[in-house]
Amino acid sequence: MKLINCPLNGPRNAQEFVCAGEVKLMPDPNACSDTEWTDYVFMENNTAGVVREWWCHVPTAFWFIAERDTVTDTFIRTYPASEVFGARVDFAAPAAKGGGA
């Protein structure tokens, strides 16, 4: 069983973790096109190489980001999400569309 180095808990057995797929930046839901949005929701690149993924240490519910080589299945680096998501995210009010408010 693989070991995964949780930034909060140190190396732990892989069965304690779940993966939530690649880290993708959400497009502005009120401004992007339908295609951009569906790509964000449904498309996975399935990269052969180094990917950035969301992993969660389930017993402590700690989410972090891992850089993993999908070809060799090796974890290159794990780090807290704040390295990528450092600032508070706010959403602008939806632009008036079709009479909506």
Binding site: V18, A20, M26, W54, C56, V58, A61, F62, W63, A81, S82, F85, G86, A87, R88, V89
Partner: peptide, 20 residues
């Protein structure tokens, strides 16, 4: 639900604490 909430706020960074 709990996991999902934490995953979303890992990105939003709202000033909120969620406990199961």
């Amino acid at each position: 639900v709990y996991q999902h909430m934490l995953l979303m706020n890992a990105q939003w960074r709202l000033d909120v604490d969620v406990t199961n």
